[in-house]
Design a protein around this nucleic acid. Structure first.
Lengths: 261, 261
DNA sequence: TACCGCTTGTGAACGGATGCACAAAGTTGA
DNA sequence: TCAACTTTGTGCATCCGTTCACAAGCGGTA
């Protein structure tokens, strides 16, 4: 663990030393400080490790080494160990990690000990799919509310939940304690919906609309843009085709740059 | 543009100098070399700029400054200019960028001058949504084939295209020149589907199944994992709640660390 | 033409993430 | 009990991407 404070740090800095110095168990303050230091990229990978570990646990695996877990998660083992070190030191040298222990600690760090109710706004094709998507509730994200602007949809149950009109967004979100809003509307409507979610108190938004949302600083937005994903793939197709079509002789291309040695 | 070669480079290295030294117009070799150097993160942003610029063009905007475009795309202007510099120097100092020129150059770099036919495998909720999603064809990614393992679905048209049985994946993909495969199957089936797509010659895959796919080096995979996105949001909820609940006095939390000054 | 103000393009500094390599720490077996 | 072996945790070096800051370049104006 790297110490991120400025100068004047005579304090003990390693996670292990800190734990034994402070208290036998980890204090809430420690969790808080560590959470602040975890890089975003590592958080995304932790979620992947968690999924893999859950699968392992179901298959009755009780212990796993960094090498095995890294292989299953598609990363190298050094990175995996560093990521896990952000969570804390819960491995046993010479043995590996206890799957259940690791699962519970990652869940704690990711905040999965609380329930996070989800509201989906925009019940079109994608909204339907999201409302019916089994991956959410099974991972602790119950879909608690659906909204659409079409009055004909109001009251119609989708995935077991009746659709509310978007005008009721504030009261319904408050009542059902929605903490995550999912925007699956056409792009033109996205910013307005976003504004309503924010004023309803929702601080985390997952946006499927191809629009850059403007939000206050305290709101966290993640976006999933399918067209952008496609275009990134397209870029790689093009790059690869260029390489293949290029004047490559004996593995050496333009400017004497070696291609794939 | 940064020179990535090793030692002994007496050659001219800046993009501008190279262009004027080589030829009046940019050679294919230049495009190829530049494409190889563009960081992945920049590619993703270029796709966003492209979307914003297309919108601008529709509204009749002909010229735009880096500051304006950056604002609309949600990035800072320095980053935007650096990203555009990977594409080439097509701005006019003191004025800005010509919208149409920029659009065509970004499209060229992203490989959008070719057609990229898409196959969707797994016609469940998500598959339906993807098959009907208007954002693909409108951006140059026509959905050319649909596959499912359920024989009852075979022949049923979804979004105007009849579903094929997954056993026909090789012949249909070859015939319709599919270059991008989208996996929208349950997780258990994903790896098998992926293998079949790869052996059918598909080299780019967009994976919605929560599984880490194993593929040969020459295949490009991008994944969209909704549960992971949720968990990242959850992490931020938790971090924020911890900060708020923590023993924060006068904006100073544990260990004297200042919180949001 | 010569100057002025504006905007681009890009070196250079910075910071964060990645990968390496090894000491520390634990287990197993004799 | 001790030695050999395995695997973690992490300091360190490296690399990549972001940000800063400013010189170069262009249009407008007198």
């Amino acid at each position: 663990m790297v110490d991120r404070r400025g100068a004047g740090d005579e304090v003990v800095t390693t996670a292990a030393a800190k734990r034994s110095a402070d208290a036998p168990a980890e204090s809430a303050a420690d969790v808080r400080e560590r959470a602040r230091a975890i890089p975003e990229a590592a958080v995304a990978r932790l979620a992947v490790y968690l999924r893999v570990l859950s699968g392992m646990a179901e298959q009755g695996v009780t212990t796993i080494s960094s090498e095995e877990l890294a292989g299953a998660a598609g990363v190298n083992s050094a990175k995996l160990r560093k990521d896990l070190s952000y969570v804390g030191s819960y491995g046993t040298r010479g043995v590996g990690y206890d799957v259940e222990v690791l699962v519970s600690h990652i869940e704690r760090i990711l905040g999965l000990t609380r329930k996070h109710s989800v509201a989906v706004v925009g019940i079109g094709n994608l909204g339907h799919a999201l409302a019916n998507y089994g991956g959410f509730p099974s991972r602790g994200f119950p879909v608690a509310a659906l909204f659409d602007i079409d009055p004909d949809l109001t009251g119609v149950p989708v995935g077991g939940i009746p659709v509310n009109h978007i005008d009721d967004i504030t009261s319904v979100c408050a009542e059902r304690e929605v903490s995550i809003g999912v925007i699956a509307t056409p792009p033109q409507a996205a910013q307005a919906v976003c504004d309503r979610l924010v004023s309803a108190g929702v601080q985390c938004i997952l946006n499927f609309a191809p629009v850059v949302l403007q939000v206050p600083d305290y709101v966290e937005v993640r976006k999933v843009d399918l067209a952008v994903e496609m275009q990134i793939l397209s870029f790689h197709v093009a790059r690869r085709a260029d390489e293949a079509a290029g004047d490559v002789v004996n593995g050496v291309g333009v400017d004497g740059v070696v291609i794939r040695p």
